[in-house]
């Protein structure tokens, strides 16, 4: 019994410690943004690295997600004979929920964990101390450019992903679910609104922010050499996934 209480207490203290660390990081990022003081070269480099290099994985994910959604929609629709609803169902689900969440998770896996690994390696090989020793603020040189690029890039990648997912849905609708393209398109274009797309894109922006903050925090607090880096990446993706799902809940509520 005593052990259990001690464990709960320890867990609570840990949670407070981590939350405090994240908030402190957030505060430092905001402080570096007003007035904006960050390295423009690093910002552009990260935009390229995080954006362009994630395109293949985002396209692959979105394409199959579209396929899965149209299959699921048609399981439902076939029993009711309402083929005209497939385009609407797939579009609505992809734009508002499944698209942003799955793309956010994949982005966290690709870019977020890579970011944690990179920062963590810099910590254990004393490169962060090296920056400080050269009189360069790691906040302005490393963190702020990364946070900004991740928010911008997940937003833009989600736009690409949305388009690809709909293409995938239409294609697999024809191939597997017996839905003609015309039927898919009519149903899609008549029932899916700009508001649905905007709903998803706002989420994407917030998810990008969450991924950026959790991955930078996990990276900067690495301890214990190469082994510690692996552990930090693990923590980063788990925290990001929790953050994405929980914020999705609140966003869905407040955006509707």
């Amino acid at each position: 019994m005593y052990n259990l209480i001690a464990k709960i207490g320890e867990g609570a203290l840990n949670l407070c410690h981590e939350t405090g660390g994240l908030l402190h990081l957030l505060f430092m990022v905001i402080k570096s943004l007003f007035p904006p003081r960050f390295d423009p070269g690093e910002f552009l480099r990260n935009l390229y690295k995080m954006g362009v290099k994630s395109v293949p994985i985002i396209i692959l994910t979105a394409f199959f997600t579209g396929g899965i959604m149209v299959i699921q929609a048609s399981v439902f629709v076939k029993r009711f004979g309402a083929t005209s609803l497939v385009g609407w169902g797939a579009g609505y689900a992809v734009f508002r929920e499944v698209g942003p969440i799955l793309l956010g998770l994949m982005f966290s896996g690709r870019v977020g964990s890579n970011n944690t690994a990179e920062l963590g390696t810099m910590v254990v090989t004393e490169q962060i101390d090296g920056l400080k020793a050269l009189g360069i603020d790691p906040m302005q040189y490393l963190i702020v450019p990364r946070v900004l690029s991740m928010i911008i890039m997940l937003f833009l990648l989600t736009i690409i992903g949305d388009v690809i997912a709909i293409v995938g849905a239409a294609l697999f609708g024809i191939l597997i679910a017996d839905v003609s393209f015309a039927a898919f398109w009519t149903s899609f274009s008549q029932n899916v609104h700009v508001a649905d797309v905007v709903h998803g894109l706002i989420k994407a922006g917030v998810f990008g922010f969450i991924v950026s903050l959790t991955s930078c925090y996990a990276g900067m607090t690495v301890r214990g050499g190469a082994v510690g880096v692996g552990r930090a990446v693990n923590n980063a993706v788990v925290t990001a996934a929790l953050g994405i799902v929980i914020s999705d809940y609140f966003l869905t509520y407040s955006l509707s």
Partner: peptide
């Protein structure tokens, strides 16, 4: 940061930026 411009450091594993 002004002191760090005056005092440089060479780290054990060099700490060059990868």
């Amino acid at each position: 940061f002004t002191i760090r411009r005056k005092v440089a450091m060479v780290f054990q594993a060099s700490a060059l930026f990868d």
